[in-house]
Each structure stands twice: as structure tokens, then as C-alpha cells.
Amino acid sequence: MTAVLESPTPTRPDLNRPLLVLAAVMAVTAVVTAILAVVDPVQITGTNGWLKPLKFSISIAIYAVTIALLLTLLPARRRKLGRGIAWVVVTGMVVEMAVIVGAVATGTTSHFNVSSPLRGAAWASMGFAIAAVWLVTLVLAVLLWRASDDPARRLAIRAGLVIGLAGMAVAFLMTSPTAEQLDSFSGIAGAHAVGVADGGPGLPLLGWSTTGGDLRVPHFVGMHALQALPLLAFGLEAQRRRVPALESSGTRFRVVAIVSAGYAVVVVLLTLQALAGIPVTQPFG
């Protein structure tokens, strides 16, 4: 008898360890900064300074886990490149958090702060780090364009990455000096808010302006399409036994397509609203 040799079934790689470590460090950072926000509520531009690193640490932790999950979808020949992407993300996020925490610890702002050569260099390093993270996320989007055989899951990953990249790109709109800053330069070049100064009345914890437009809104909503749309696809798959209609991959695809299109429209509308100087609390002006 001739023995039949079976080719080994390819196994999905483990979650990227550096990204998981980053997520764990950010989780600890979130706890520490939450405590500091209570015991040492330092006021920076009219708000509790420790809330910024708290929000960023939570967002970065979620982002790191998401990228770690997406990297497991890469084919074997692309996994070395995936590890390189992971290290760029880890390095970029560490640089960003170091600048943010350092600024709060010294009682000043991190974003848009060019009031001294040191502050300017810190802000430039943060901008370079985030640009690098955006670029490698774009590379990952290209690599994952055919990541799944399931049409709904494939669309969710594609749409999540594309809308997520667009949401991340909104941040670049914040880096241009406002007209007021050009007229009277005080060391700050750029702003989150539109039509009003940063640091005014805002939503609890999030800080989004309630008196003017705020580009952080479409930035946040768009960026988290990375999680929302793939989770939608996985959720639809999980409900196949309870909802017979979801047994059809075509039905799941149409649901993901409609939600993805709606999500993209919302991000565009939120961006236009912010640029028009309309608060997120007044969606109809």
C-alpha cells in the first residue's frame, strides 16, 4: 500500500505579542490616569488635563487589539511584513502617549503646542508617529483586501479599514493654524474646535465642543469603523441559527453593505458639520 501524505492544514498565527503588550500597558495607563484625574485634577485649557491621556489610552488599547486581530488574517507569506506593521504601530503609539502624558505632567498641552523648541519638537515627533501609523494601516488595508472568502466579512473588513483611515485622516485637518492664531500667535498652531477656541464648554469626558464645531467627532466615529463593521459581520454570523434569513451570505452581505454606506455618510456629515462650526449637540444647526 502506498501511504498518502496529507499536507498540513495552515494554522492561523497567534495574536501579535507586542500589540497585546501595548494594549495591556494602555489599560494600566487608563487606570492610572483615571485615578490622577480624581486626585490631581490639573486644569489645562479649562479642562481636567488627565482626561486626555485617559481617552487616548482607551482608544489605543482598542486599536492595538483590533490590528492584532486583523494581522492574523494575513497569508503566511505576508506575516513578516505584518510583524513590521505591528512594530510601527507600537512605536508610534508609545511616542504619542509619551508626549501626551509628559505634557500633562508639566501642566501644558501636547497637541499643536509649538511655544518652544522642545514643545515644537515633541509635537512634530507626535505628528510623524501618527503619520507613520496611518501609512502602515493603509498598507494593511491593501494586504487584507481579499482577506476572507465570506463576502459579508470581506466587505466589513474593507469598509472598516477604508472608513477608519478616513476618520484617522480627519486629524490632519486639525493641524492648520486658525485665523485667530495667525493674527495673534501665542505658541499654538492648530485646534480641535472650529469657530470657537479649544477648551470651552464640551461634552462630559469626551470634551467635544458644545458651542462650535469639533473635528474630534468625525475623527473618533470614523476611526472606530475598524471595530464596528467587522464586529457587525461577526455578529450577523453568530445569529444565523436564531435568524434563518442570516443563513444566506447574500443577506449578510447586503446588511453589511447598507450599514457600511450609512456609516460612511455619517462620517462625511459629521466632518462637514464640524467644518461649518456647528456643535455635535445641534445636528440640524
Rank of each mutant, 00 (worst) to 15 (best):
D198V: 07
A257F: 07
G195C: 00
L51S: 10
L71K: 03
V217D: 03
S7P: 10
F172P: 06
G164P: 00
I44T: 09
T106C: 04
T251C: 11
P41V: 11
A34I: 06
I258F: 13
A98N: 06
M93K: 03
G46P: 11
P283N: 07
L269Q: 13
R17V: 14
L215T: 05
N48K: 05
G222F: 03
P75I: 13
L143P: 10
E96V: 06
L20G: 01
S176Y: 12
D149P: 05
A129T: 04
P10N: 10
I62R: 06
T91Y: 09
V28P: 00
Q227L: 13
A166C: 08
D198K: 14
R252V: 05
H111C: 03
L215W: 11
G167A: 01
P8K: 11
A141Q: 12
P177K: 05
V162I: 13
R158W: 00
A233I: 04
M168E: 03
R153K: 12
D40P: 10
A124R: 09
N48L: 09
A228F: 09
S7W: 00
T210N: 11
A61N: 08
V38A: 14
T251P: 13
A225D: 08
G285T: 06
T251E: 05
R119G: 01
M97G: 09
V136Q: 01
P18T: 06
G277R: 04
V217G: 05
F253I: 02
G235E: 09
H224G: 00
L5K: 12
F172T: 07
M1D: 11
V136D: 04
V266M: 12
G120F: 04
S248Q: 06
R83S: 15
P117F: 03
L272D: 00
G167L: 02
V139Y: 01
W87P: 02
R153A: 03
T2P: 09
S249L: 01
P244R: 09
L135D: 07
A166H: 07
A30V: 05
L206G: 08
L138W: 14
T109I: 14
V39C: 08
V90Q: 01
T2F: 05
F185K: 06
R154Q: 12
A131H: 13
M174G: 00
I58W: 04
S260N: 09
V217S: 02
P279M: 12
T11A: 14
Q43E: 10
G207V: 11
T175P: 05
A68E: 10
A228Y: 02
G285C: 02
M1T: 12
G199T: 02
V42R: 13
L5P: 14
P201C: 08
L231Y: 11
A64D: 11
A61T: 02
E247V: 11
I278W: 09
A264S: 14
R252M: 07
V259I: 07
G107P: 08
V99P: 14
V142G: 05
R83L: 10
G120C: 05
A238Q: 03
A30S: 03
V89Y: 00
E247F: 05
A274W: 14
G82I: 07
P177F: 09
V65R: 04
F128L: 15
L232Q: 00
G49E: 06
L236Y: 03
P13F: 10
D150E: 11
A261Q: 13
A30E: 07
G200K: 13
T106S: 12
G160A: 06
V88A: 09
W50N: 06
A228D: 06
I35M: 07
A276T: 12
D198S: 12
G222V: 09
